[in-house]
């Protein structure tokens, strides 16, 4: 693969990963109220939350692995897991590393949820609220596309979506209607 192709892949997978994480965070916040969210009942929201998180992580891994081979970024394996040491824009790239660590922690503890118990899982899962803004700021500050209009537009849409979900599913707006009957056999594994 030419280095140009790698570079496009690295940028593209980073953006896709951010968009997916935005969906994941929005669904995570949306399901807290226990009400149906965007017409989907709780089971559907939980399933999409989980699958989108795993998919986002796959894109994040593609993002990082392609950057390992990128001659300009000159990342190495240590930079991928230990923040703020890279030669290239250490602060902004370090934020990306931090977001990756947090995403790994949140995902791994979620997959082991029934073994580690609810309290430990919740404690780690809260880190998602730090992970997502850190990833967003990393994207604004470190890439070739930084401060290009289209990337800022995507970032803005991400921020607005999460805020809109947080506001609209806030407990203060809680409806008193009875829960809709579940009809979700399709989500059986």
């Amino acid at each position: 693969m030419s280095t140009d192709a790698l570079w496009y892949l690295a940028r593209g997978s980073g953006v896709v990963s951010l968009i997916l994480f935005t969906v994941v965070v929005a669904l995570g916040i949306g399901t807290r109220s226990g009400r149906p969210f965007a017409g989907m009942n709780r089971l559907v929201v939980a399933s999409v939350h989980r699958s989108a998180a795993l998919l986002a992580l796959v894109f994040l891994v593609i993002h990082v692995v392609t950057l390992l081979f990128d001659p300009y970024a000159q990342l190495n394996l240590v930079d991928v897991l230990l923040p703020f040491g890279s030669g290239y824009r250490p602060f902004w790239v370090g934020l990306g590393t931090l977001a990756l660590d947090l995403a790994l922690a949140v995902t791994i503890t979620s997959l082991l949820r029934d073994r580690i118990g609810l309290r430990a899982w919740k404690a780690v899962h809260w880190l998602a609220y730090a992970m997502w803004p850190i990833a967003l700021v990393h994207g604004i500050g470190s890439g070739t596309d930084r401060s290009t209009l289209w990337l800022l537009a995507i970032d803005a849409v991400c921020v607005v979506s999460v805020i809109a979900v947080a506001v609209s599913s806030h407990p203060a707006l809680k409806a008193t209607s009875a829960p809709a009957a579940p009809k979700t056999l399709a989500w059986r594994e």
Partner: peptide
């Protein structure tokens, strides 16, 4: 004591479970 009545289980097991009016 842990269940919050959000009905996820009833959606997966409609053959054996339904939700009461609080979910």
């Amino acid at each position: 004591t842990a269940c919050e009545g959000r009905g996820l289980c009833a959606g997966l097991l409609p053959e054996v479970l339904t939700q009461d009016k609080w979910g």
